[in-house]
C-alpha cells in the first residue's frame, strides 16, 4: 500500500485563531468561579501546559523534519521511549527489580518491530527513518503500549500477592511455578489488552478516532483516512500485545526462584 496525500487542502490556523478558541475556555471558567467549583485554576494550568508543550513539540518536529537525518530522528525516538517506559512503571502500584529497564526494552522491541515493519513493508517509505511517518506512528504506539504494560504489570503482581496462599497451595502439590502462577499471569496479560480490544470493538460506532479526524480535517479523503486508521489499529494491537507479553514474562522470570517458589520480597509496593 502506498498512500499519497493528494492535495494539501486545509485552512491554516493563525495564533489569533487559537486565542479566539481559548475564549471558549472562559465560559466554563466563569461558571466555575461563580459556583466556586475550583476548576478554574487547573483549567488554566492545563491550558497553559498544552500551549507550551505542544509549541515546544512543534518546534522540535519542524527541526527534525527539516534536518531529515537519521541521527536527528533516532535520539528523538529514544527520548520518547524513555518517557513512555518511565510513565508506564510509575503508574503501576507494584514493581520488581529492573522494572524500568524491562519496560524500556519491552516497549522498544514491540514498537520498533511494528513501526519499522509497517513503514518498510506496508507503507514503503523511501528512507527507513522518514520522520513524517516514524515519529507519529511510534508516538501512537507508545501511548497505547505504556497504558497496556502498566495495567498488566499492576494486575499481575497485585493478583499474585493477593493469591499467595493459592499459589503456595498449588506449588505444595508439586506444580511448577509457571503452572502455579499461570491463571494470574494470564489475568494480567488480559487486563493490559482490554483498552485496545475495547476500542477496536467500538471504533467508528461511537466516535471518529483522533488520528482519522485529524487527517480528514487536513483534507485527506475519508476512504484514505479510514485505511490509515485500520492500519494504526492493527499496529497498536500488535505492539501492545507484544509489549505486554514481553514485560509480563520477564517480570515473572525476575520474581521466580529456581526452586519453584515466588521471590515475594522482590515484588515491591508503590503509590500508583
Amino acid at each position: 500500500m502506498s498512500l499519497v496525500i493528494a492535495t494539501v487542502d486545509y485552512i491554516q490556523l493563525t495564533p489569533w485563531d487559537l486565542a479566539l478558541a481559548a475564549v471558549l475556555l472562559l465560559i466554563p471558567a466563569a461558571i466555575s468561579i461563580a459556583l466556586r467549583l475550583g476548576l478554574e485554576k487547573n483549567l488554566a494550568i492545563a491550558s497553559f501546559r498544552t500551549v507550551v508543550q505542544l509549541a515546544f513539540l512543534g518546534l522540535i518536529l519542524e527541526w527534525v523534519f527539516g534536518a531529515d537525518r537519521w541521527f536527528y530522528v533516532v535520539p528523538m525516538l529514544a527520548v520518547m521511549l524513555f518517557f513512555a517506559a518511565r510513565a508506564a512503571i510509575q503508574r503501576s502500584t507494584k514493581r520488581f527489580p529492573g522494572s524500568y529497564l524491562t519496560a524500556f526494552a519491552a516497549l522498544t522491541l514491540a514498537t520498533s518491530v511494528t513501526t519499522f515493519g509497517v513503514t518498510e513493508l506496508v507503507i514503503g517509505v523511501e528512507q527507513w527513518y522518514e520522520p513524517q511517518y516514524v515519529i507519529p506512528l511510534l508516538g501512537m504506539l507508545l501511548g497505547n503500549g505504556l497504558t497496556g504494560i502498566s495495567l498488566s504489570l499492576d494486575r499481575m503482581l497485585s493478583d499474585l500477592m493477593a493469591q499467595r496462599s493459592a499459589v503456595e497451595a498449588r506449588l505444595a502439590l508439586g506444580a511448577s511455578l509457571w503452572r502455579a502462577c499461570r491463571p494470574w499471569v494470564r489475568e494480567g496479560l488480559r487486563n493490559g489488552m482490554i483498552p485496545i480490544i475495547n476500542s477496536m470493538m467500538i471504533v467508528g460506532l461511537v466516535s471518529l478516532p483522533g488520528m482519522m479526524t485529524g487527517q480528514i480535517l487536513a483534507g485527506v479523503p475519508p476512504a484514505d483516512a479510514v485505511a490509515y486508521q485500520i492500519l494504526i489499529m492493527f499496529m497498536i494491537a500488535a505492539a501492545t500485545a507484544l509489549a505486554v507479553i514481553v514485560l509480563c514474562l520477564i517480570a515473572f522470570k525476575v520474581v521466580s526462584h529456581p526452586e519453584h517458589r515466588v521471590r515475594w520480597d522482590a515484588i515491591t509496593r508503590h503509590e500508583g
Partner: peptide, 24 residues
C-alpha cells in the same frame, strides 16, 4: 533437595495449609 527434584518431593511430601484456599 535441589531445584531439580523439589517438585517431585512436594508431590510426595504434601503441605496442607492451615486455611483451606481455593486453587481454582
Amino acid at each position: 533437595i535441589t531445584a531439580d527434584n523439589i517438585r517431585r518431593f512436594r508431590n510426595e511430601v504434601v503441605y496442607v495449609h492451615q486455611t483451606p484456599v481455593a486453587i481454582a
